[in-house]
Design a protein around this nucleic acid. Structure first.
Lengths: 199, 199
DNA sequence: ACCTGAACACCGTTCAAGT
DNA sequence: ACCTGAACACCGTTCAAGT
């Protein structure tokens, strides 16, 4: 029997298998053996489905560090897991950045653990949300960056000697990961310094 | 007479006035006094138009700091201008993160100036692109965050005491800007430290 | 070479009609 | 209460026909 949860579960599978463009209401209905219009007895809109899918993705993000480690080590572990989750679902990035958390239980649970870890780590309450948002912005931007083609910075016919030099000097392998690691290290180093100054 | 540049210019205006959803090929054609199919004599696809629009947006980003200031101050100025530009055009964020720069002259010119500034500031060539990508990821994520509603972290009916505490303690005003400023300060502080270690 | 107008293969969503 | 089937108002894009 058709339920909102059943629709969400099938939507997650569909998104995983067919990607962003494959997730249409028609495709979702066909998979569930039902007419497209039948879905609207259980969800109000496609945005509804996407919000539920997003909460499911957030359920898989690793927040365990905040009960075991120092705040900065926990933040690093969370950020990496968070980035990887959204690198698998880049279409959800603009949604995540903008959707209120009020009806997403797993998402709220995640923020609760992160906030508690920062507070316990010595961050003043008035800065906790800013730290979370700052790290999250870096994470979501980095998740989008994983989708970039390897030659994204190739200037082609255009004149850009320094860009060319920097490209040539950059080591191969997982370049998106290297940029993420450098940025995360800088961000955490900076946050440690700021905490000493402001805490 | 209809040209690719004319189409781009009108697309920029349309995006500014009507937003992401207002930029359709039909609306673009109507503004230009032409049938939708006529556009395809000058552009191959809508993605084509978006790429050109994006290059135009990048033309407006302030890179002047890199010829005047220390690398970190210049990077801060660039990042702020970059964030503001994409906060005005959030629909372009996923495109910017993923589009090769090869046929976007203003975009390449921007990267050239940024890379040259970092190199002159003492960054080793093999790290320059990673620094650029790391800052850019933070900037684009922050641009998306400017679109979030003010109550995005309100847990509603859900149980999340620490989230509530952190929300209540957070000062009002431009919260997205406060998070951006904190993150940028942390990122730059960290990058300065890393440069001393690795430079 | 460049435009029009009709058409195609889609979208998300609504709604009367059935059970 | 929940489904079907037809319909609506769109999309981006193609293509034969005109000039």
């Amino acid at each position: 029997m058709l339920t909102a949860d059943g629709i969400t579960a099938e939507a997650v599978r569909l998104l995983e298998e067919r990607g962003q463009d494959g997730l249409t209401m028609a495709a979702l209905a066909r998979r569930l053996g039902v007419a497209p219009s039948a879905l609207y007895n259980h969800v109000a809109t496609k945005q509804d489905v996407l919000r539920a899918v997003q909460d499911d993705v957030n359920r898989g993000i690793d927040c365990d560090g905040f009960e075991e480690l120092a705040w900065d080590a926990a933040l690093a572990r969370w950020a990496l897991s968070y980035r990887d989750a959204y690198a698998r679902h880049p279409a959800l990035v603009p949604i995540m950045a903008v959707t209120p958390v009020g009806s997403s239980p797993h998402t709220v649970a995640m923020y609760e653990r992160v906030s508690a870890g920062l507070l316990a780590g010595g961050w003043p309450a008035h800065l906790v949300t800013n730290v979370v948002v700052a790290v999250e912005s870096f994470v979501l931007g980095s998740a989008l960056d994983t989708q970039a083609p390897a030659d994204i910075f190739d200037p082609g016919e255009l004149d850009a000697p320094t860009v060319r030099t920097a490209n040539a000097a950059r080591p191969g392998g997982d370049t998106a990961r290297a940029a993420f690691d450098l940025g995360l290290e800088a961000l955490l180093t900076g946050l440690r310094t700021l905490l000493v100054q402001k805490g």
